[in-house]
Nucleic acid binder design. Sequence first.
DNA 1: GAGATAAAGAGTACTTTTTACGCTTATTGT
DNA 2: ACAATAAGCGTAAAAAGTACTCTTTATCTC
Lengths: 242, 242
Amino acid sequence: MDFRKIKNISVDIVLFGFDGKDINVLLSKRYLNLHNPHYPIIDDWVLTGNHIFKSERLDTAAQRVMHDVSGHDAPFMRQFRTFGNPKRVTKNKDLLWSQSQQIDPRTLSVGYYALTHCSDFEIQDPNYQWFPINALPELGFDHQYIIEMAFKYVKEIINVSPIIYHLLPIKFTLNSLLSVYETIFDITIDNRNFRKKMISKPYIVQLDEKERQPNSKKPANLYMFSKDIYRHMITEKPRIII
Amino acid sequence: MDFRKIKNISVDIVLFGFDGKDINVLLSKRYLNLHNPHYPIIDDWVLTGNHIFKSERLDTAAQRVMHDVSGHDAPFMRQFRTFGNPKRVTKNKDLLWSQSQQIDPRTLSVGYYALTHCSDFEIQDPNYQWFPINALPELGFDHQYIIEMAFKYVKEIINVSPIIYHLLPIKFTLNSLLSVYETIFDITIDNRNFRKKMISKPYIVQLDEKERQPNSKKPANLYMFSKDIYRHMITEKPRIII
DNA sequence: GAGATAAAGAGTACTTTTTACGCTTATTGT
DNA sequence: ACAATAAGCGTAAAAAGTACTCTTTATCTC
């Protein structure tokens, strides 16, 4: 294994975390102060990411980055788009940063989106932090744009692939699933119809467990998504709608 | 503009062309013969692609490649995935080729899919050729894999975005549209229901022209897809099915 | 333990979309 | 003129989606 970094290729991960209320994005603090501590030159946030090693696969690099953050297994993640605009690193602070890190300012960034439930992805290091997607801080590079693209992409893929479950714990209540849909698409959904629809799906499996909510009244049934059942039943019927 | 090639980044385009019957893929002849003309060392096909220039955008590079092939404007194309497995170039002939072209065997390839109707994309040069997707020749590098991924991707995106029309001429008949669906998804569709459904869509606009088919009986009405109308009416309702 | 509360969860009626299939109309080659 | 072929219309049944009313269940408060 060759651990030298390829200077012009990186992976950046847009990790979306649902906390029961908001969709959040994991960001990493970027701080650089060459001279005077009172006048930091760079003090903003960026996506988690890193340059890849000479003999490393892209997926592996992305997993490595996630592992470095949490120490745990990487969450569900998929490549969604590569950003290679030669002008994506042109702001002064970004150029300065590239220089300080000895990386090529003309870096190709392979973008990954990742999904998790916040409680499943613990962060100790205060240099990493969740931000609600509707209240992002100042971001370095073109990361604001990358996040927007990732979110748009995820919303599209949710309609054709069962990835939304990754935003919830393995065992989840129907209300929480409904809540994810409502949050992501910014809509309201009729609880009763939603239940009927979901319960009718063979791959939404009811468990024998119940969950006591914080402001608990009646505890809710827990369900899980069965990838196996889902796979076995995909008729793969196209929509022919569009 | 800096026209030096970046040695480890390329774009590869999977151009799908519908000819009324098959889905075809455009391939480029790869031929290398160092010594004896009777024993070519490399004689196979690859995707059209090229390394990008130092100050070139990815999309621009992809368009350049298409332009080099046809001399015409590039067809509709979108990035779909980047291939960066360090072992993607390991076969002897591929290594030899990389050497002869002075490119890095550890090249990251940004994959684009592109869609056209074969008649809209004329090829003079016999080094470029259409191959039915079900009858591809021997392919270099990991291009077989890239094509498979591209096709899978396209089939998914067709369900959420109106890209299928790019496989047809601007003016098309409903039968030809039906035919594309049938070919891509390998299904049969009821002609009468399909017509009703399509005609009911505001963005499928009937024209005043008719088309006389080759084995013509009754000439068919021509339609076109209106991007404008489509955009104006997207309610963007999520499915909540999966 | 009675009653209030909040969410789970059934039920019902209506609308829209999809599917299946019979039949008619239009155009051209022979 | 007629056969052949594809375009195109109509109708009915099934399935899926939507809107709302009402009931049940478990827990907290008093």
